[in-house]
Design a binder for these strands. Sequence first.
DNA 1: TAGAGCCTACATGAACAACG
DNA 2: CGTTGTTCATGTAGGCTCTA
Length: 360
Amino acid sequence: MSGSVRRTTMPSIEIVAKEAGVSTATAGRALGGYGSVSRKSREAVLAAAERLGYRPNSLARSMITGLTHTLGVLVPDIENPFFSRALRGIADAAHERGWEVLLVNTDEDLALERKALSVLTERRVDGLVVAPTDVADRDALQAVVDAGIPVVLLDRRVPGLEADTVGIDNRAAAKDATERLLKLGHRSVALLTGGDEKLRPKLSRPGLRGVERLAATTVGARAAGYRDALVEAGIEPRPELVSAEGFRREDAAAATRRLLALPDPPTAILALDSLLALGVLQALRGLGLRCPVDVSLVAFDDADWAEAISPPLSVVAQPIYELGAEAGRLLLDRVQGSDKRFTHRRLPTRFIERESATSR
DNA sequence: TAGAGCCTACATGAACAACG
DNA sequence: CGTTGTTCATGTAGGCTCTA
């Protein structure tokens, strides 16, 4: 005896075949719907499977097909409404085509992201949707791609990586939002970015090269669009009006207080996500200032509450669900053998004018 | 007796051969 | 030609055998 023990009492194809009086191959064909099987055999197999409560063993199936029918999804923070909505799109696209989704949070932590990549690779996911933590860190993602696992980048781009990407035209969207504030008569517009302290000096550097380099990241691209609008309007960008003090709401509140304490404070603020916008509103209330009478505010992302607050928030709305769904579909195309050229899919944004920005 | 290396179970799908 | 059966490969863990 081998000493090996059956791990479950679940009937295998072999048992079903025996019960139906056919070979395992015929049972496999009947259950799997491939090859040719006589009606009589198929009915006998299906009846036997029904009687025995047969369920296919996906572990064994993966062993031979090399597919786990699982997609890995790596996002910085599932509590961020952007990513939870996008995940919904990814999962729906996956389910539609018979795939499951395995989710890992990276907490914007490069070490966690690398760990997650190796875990998901060991789990033999068929493909990965990734919102990478650091777009400059290509190695770990490239290793996954080199191992033959297709990757689709969501929201962020990693220069040089062989992967499809899905996102919006961040630069154009930020430029449009800034232009709207300028058109309302604002000359002193602040940009609340959340991240990357390196932004400020780059924005103030003359010439385009600094900005072009910036545009690789989401935040950088939006900052570049903000700058484009100012420059086209003949306004000199003021580095002290660009905040890069962190992504949390308290960070945004602190940044707002700093901005409004400047000798020549901004009359309008562009916040790069909805959480930052909350921080702005919190700070304004603390300072006894009103929006939009004292300070106009426009934010990226049409959060659930954006329309419900007073004043309702004017926003740059991203098609977040559709971004996720498109990422999922692109990835499954790759998993199922598409070798088309890598695409950078840009979905359109929509400016929703409400009441948080007025003329001055 | 330790360690290396070979063998087998596991469930399924596919290549191939054979049958009527 | 449609249908069926045989055999093998798949990746890994754990057990067995052989060797030093």
